[in-house]
Amino acid sequence: MFEYDFMRTAFAAAAIVSVVSGVVGYFLVLRGQVFAGHALSHVGFTGATGAVLLGISPLWGLVGMTVLGGIGMGLLGSRLAERDVTIGIVLSVSLGLGLLFLHFFTAHATQATALLFGNVMGVDVPTLWNLAGLGAVSLTGLAVISRPLLFATLQPEVAEARGVSLRLVSVLFLSVVALAVAECVQIVGVLLVFTLMVGPAATAQALTARLGRGILLAAVIALVEGIGGVALAYVTDWPTSFWIATLSGGAYALASLRR
């Protein structure tokens, strides 16, 4: 399967996005903000369909809207976990708006499926470079904020007393998440962002309580699931996202049983 260019590109794209999603997802799960990640992907759907409508690349529409959404959520409040209702409403309005944009631009009906469920086989080389660049920005940003992020996540009250701005940390982190989500959508789609962002991270946290090991494990699990999904899709001709979702769910179930 490596003899085809599109397969090599697909493997490379899956690898990059899986590692970024695994690492960023670890912090997302640790902070209990998985729902925010889910909502960001839906906001991204509006951005991507809106971009198509305007004749811009859907990737940049995605990135633009998820980052704006991330900053907005971060500013709304640091205790985002308690804002389920607000997030839920923003999420559904975004998806509805995205549907409207699609309605105006019916020529690209397949685009909708690609956005909702991903299309890693359709990633071209320029997109691959974009994914690599976005991934690098996302991981670098995470590295820079990881110290105060952990502090604010584990002990918000003490962090505040020590002079850490919980709001700033939250905004910066959700911007990082937004980039990772935008990447993830390219591979598994808006609706299945959880499979790479949450599944591997939750599996890793079920297996180890150590931070460093957990982050590494989340990256490795995501990588195996991403690459494995692409390979299984090639062999079976079933959708990649189905395989990644199945591997992700299976790994989590096994890890939970072991615990």
Partner: peptide
């Protein structure tokens, strides 16, 4: 790791 997060947690950079 919980306790360690507090130490110099107010600085930027890698944890």
């Amino acid at each position: 790791d919980f306790v360690a997060a507090t130490l110099h947690g107010d600085r930027w950079g890698l944890a």
